[in-house]
Amino acid sequence: MIRTAAENATARAAIMARVGEALRIPAPPPHGLAGRSTSPVDAAGHPSLAILPLEAARPWLPDGGATPAESLAVCCENLTKLRAEVFQVPDLAAAADCLAAQARQRDWRRVAWHAHPLVEPLLAGVPCVSHRIGGDAGFDKDTLEACDAGLSACECLVAQTGSILVSSQTCGGRALSILPHVHVVVATIEQVVPTLADAFDLTRERHSGSLPSMLSFITGPSRTGDIERILVLGAHGPKELLVILVGSHAAQ
């Protein structure tokens, strides 16, 4: 019944042979690109196969701020435009107060969390049941589904786009940040990076050799425009995204 490795190898060889045959004739340069001064072209006006280093493209993309303080400001502005709620607090104690206040105000009964030095100190004041996701015991999908909020750390925040990068290794797996109705992210302001490219650099430094099985850029609460192109928040993922940012540049 199941396709054998040999069958797969035959299909692979056939496709690769077609690819090799097709590429024997070189393609012209991308439309409108030949002759543009910033494009890496050779003397004949054809783009070189060694492609544009990303460094060249960085200044053309949306701005991510030149200094850490600027990046933080851009990041907060973008998050707010995306309808995430941002809370800037000076320290972890204030972050815990902030979370407790939100939990009371929104009447949360169950909160899911994962073990992390930024997450655990916030739980003490939360006035409801909390479920730890991860660890040896694993977790029950239904329990997580029933949670009002998921509390997680993140890898970094991207100022340029207002995105939050979470990973399955360091942020409580895949479901914690997507299944509960509210996603609360706690991060320090030092975790804000200017651009997506910086986020990739960071990923490479931190995880080279063993990539997390999932890395996800979260850009605002879940949304859809499928009905008459009218924006609705909370399609399948979290309806609300709360970001608690700890620290301040002015104090340093």
Partner: peptide, 13 residues
Amino acid sequence: PMTCYNTLYAGPR
């Protein structure tokens, strides 16, 4: 500015 979720998967759990 970005689609809401841009996710990179590298294999199973």
